[in-house]
Design a protein around this nucleic acid. Structure first.
Length: 137
DNA sequence: AGGTTGACTGGGG
DNA sequence: TCCCCAGCCAACC
C-alpha cells in the first residue's frame, strides 16, 4: 500500500511550506479549494490557480501540492493541463495517482490521460450559483 | 541579493 | 500523439 506518513509530512517534510507568506497564505487557499473537489472529479493546476484569482501561478500550485500538508487534501484530483498525472506524485509514482482516480470512477484513455471535459470540476458551487440565482435582479 | 528549481502551460516540430 | 523548447513566477538555497 502506498500510504505515506501523514504525520511526518506534516511535521518535518515541509515545515516552512505550512506557513506560506506569499499572498496571504496562497498555499492554504490551494488546500481549501482542492479539498472541495468532489469525488470522481478533477481540476488542472492552471484551473486551481485561476479559480484562486492567480491564473499564472500554476507552478506555485504545484509547489503547494508537493508539500501536500494533509492527507485530507485530495491532491490526486489535480492533473496537468493535458489531463495527465503528475510525474512527481507520491515521490515519483504517478501510477498511484491514477489508481486513486480510477478507484473513484475516473477512467483513463489509452494514452494515460483523463478527459477533462468529462471529469473536470466546474469549480466552487457558489460561483456557478451566483449567476444562476441572482441573475440580474 | 541572486541563481536555480519545479506535481505548469502553450506552441511548434 | 509524443517530445522539446521558451515563458512563467514564487519558493528555495
Amino acid at each position: 500500500m502506498y500510504q505515506r506518513n501523514p504525520d511526518s509530512t506534516l511535521s518535518q517534510s515541509s515545515p516552512r511550506s505550512l506557513s506560506p507568506r506569499g499572498k496571504d497564505g496562497f498555499f492554504a487557499r490551494v488546500y481549501a479549494l482542492v479539498r472541495r473537489i468532489p469525488r470522481g472529479k478533477v481540476l488542472t493546476y492552471g484551473q486551481v490557480a485561476a479559480l484562486l484569482g492567480e491564473a499564472r501561478w500554476a507552478r506555485t500550485v504545484g509547489w503547494a501540492l508537493r508539500a501536500c500538508a494533509s492527507r485530507s487534501v485530495p491532491c490526486h484530483r489535480v492533473l496537468g493541463g493535458r489531463g495527465r498525472c503528475s510525474p512527481g506524485y507520491g515521490s515519483g509514482h504517478p501510477e498511484r495517482q491514477r489508481a486513486r482516480l480510477e478507484a473513484e470512477g475516473v477512467r483513463f484513455r489509452l494514452g494515460g490521460t483523463v478527459d477533462l471535459a468529462a471529469y473536470g470540476w466546474l469549480g466552487p458551487p457558489r460561483a456557478a450559483r451566483r449567476s444562476r440565482m441572482h441573475g440580474s435582479a
